[in-house]
Design a protein around this nucleic acid. Structure first.
Lengths: 266, 266
DNA sequence: CTATAATGTTAGGGCGTCCTAAACTTGAAG
DNA sequence: CTTCAAGTTTAGGACGCCCTAACATTATAG
């Protein structure tokens, strides 16, 4: 439950007395796990989600962050599976009350689904951070390891790992770690591609899934916290010239779009 | 994301565990089904075993340690599944060359199966040790956590954990940890039940699966390394009286049979 | 050396997850 | 408004792993 309180009763669309608010159904933010006799189709003992389901929820969460509902094909490509398989699974997720779903219209996480997604994301990022800080894992390999471990660790272990590395707020790639309570910073950052010529910016996050990209970024000195000056940008989506530390380098748009930054004054 | 999609079977060559002392291997009399039949790629690149398969191999290894071939029902009860399910799985294990199997005659690990089992056992025990030593896990809870993690960790992570806690030779319950190369101390220890009255012995290992038992053992001071004097033994499989440290206690045969010891000279 | 008990296997299902092929929806372009 | 491509769903399979029932084999006891 990240968005404090959120919508339940407070956010009704004003005076309109028309008591036919469409299928507001899925919203039903029935508190935690308990009964929820009315809306909930079939209960899922929390913590009983399969690895697959957790992967779907994570994927859907990620897609929703960049727009409205998650489309079948987007989910499919993010998970590297066939779109047809997604259709089937999505129905099951809906049956479990984790997503709301209208055929041909995409998927949205319910509050329950969102919480489950954030729990998995927390696990993933805590594990990544722990591996890097406590076990000296290189930052380009923590993702793959966390991808498997996130489905196997207990809440207790995650909490112990988090506290062992000082309750970190971001993972090694700069992504925010949800709290135990499911609160996460959802600020959208712009990427290096959005930075104007002459602008200085500070790297906040980098895409973490591509190991090779991460190794390259490390080599040219780009990691969260580093300040970058975009000194030149070739036209037609050409390469950008960057000043990083006391060196400089040129990067293509594919890389630039994977580096998130915040603009610095002046 | 997890890349499923196992179409072009192009996985890593699965780093072979270096110096393996000769593979006496499956050259045994008429190995059931040695190689993959033509056509269907039924070969299993090592390291691609499912969690279930790893559990079976571990169970079979454990049963073989206490006698010859592993019986279907023993495997079933160790894994808490129906005997019929074991029959089916065992056939699949044989197809993969992990066990040799003769109907109605029980199962034996092949050399390949044995190595796989030991790798899983190494993972399990390294994880247990790491959790206890590096993260302060209580010894009665490491087993359950390791039981899930053992199927998810990479070899690299296991090695890093092992080296972080000083390449331990035993887990927190005293069980020997196989080396990377699959070498393990298979000495059979006697249990407290086998100790004669007046004998002193040193605890070497304790059964690790029962969390309650472990808590109780901790309470009465029994852990690997501790010296115990068996001062009294009631007849008819009755309780034993032990001197542990400067205290004394009485324990029943169920507990005594779960504590492994080595006898001390008088 | 038979009965019967213990043990093991086959038959027939079910669930979860994935796949390909084929049909259907939707939305945008003509 | 029709047409078509892109996106989505259904149909029909497959595989892994589990289950219960029923049947087969082996072991044991009289």
């Amino acid at each position: 439950m990240t968005s404090r309180k959120a919508k339940p009763a407070t956010k009704r669309p004003a005076a309109s007395p028309s008591a036919v608010p469409s299928a507001a159904a899925a919203a039903a933010p029935s508190a935690t796990s308990s009964a929820a006799p009315s809306g909930a189709p079939s209960g899922v003992p929390p913590g009983e989600l399969t690895a697959s389901v957790e992967d779907y929820l994570k994927a859907i969460y990620g897609i929703e962050q960049g727009g409205g509902a998650a489309a079948t094909t987007d989910i499919a490509s993010k998970l590297s599976i066939a779109a047809a398989s997604v259709s089937g699974m999505v129905r099951r997720l809906a049956d479990q009350g984790l997503v709301s779903y209208e055929r041909y219209r995409g998927v949205r996480l319910t509050e329950t689904g969102r919480r489950a997604a954030l729990r998995t994301i927390r696990r993933h990022r805590v594990i990544e951070t722990y591996l890097a800080q406590a076990l000296g894992y290189p930052w380009d390999r923590v993702h793959a390891e966390a991808e498997r471990l996130e489905h196997a660790v207990s809440d207790e272990l995650v909490d112990r790992m988090a506290s062992a590395v000082g309750e970190p707020e971001t993972d090694p790639h700069g992504h925010p770690i949800p709290t135990r309570e499911g609160v996460i910073d959802e600020t959208q950052h712009r990427t290096l591609s959005d930075v104007a010529r002459g602008q200085r910016s500070r790297v906040t996050r980098v895409s973490d899934e591509d190991s090779e990209l991460l190794r390259y970024l490390a080599r040219i000195g780009i990691r969260p916290g580093v300040v970058v000056l975009l000194s030149e940008r070739a036209p037609f989506d050409g390469p950008l010239t960057l000043q990083v530390g006391k060196g400089s380098c040129q990067v293509g748009p594919a890389l630039a779009s994977r580096v998130m930054v915040e603009l610095l004054p002046d």
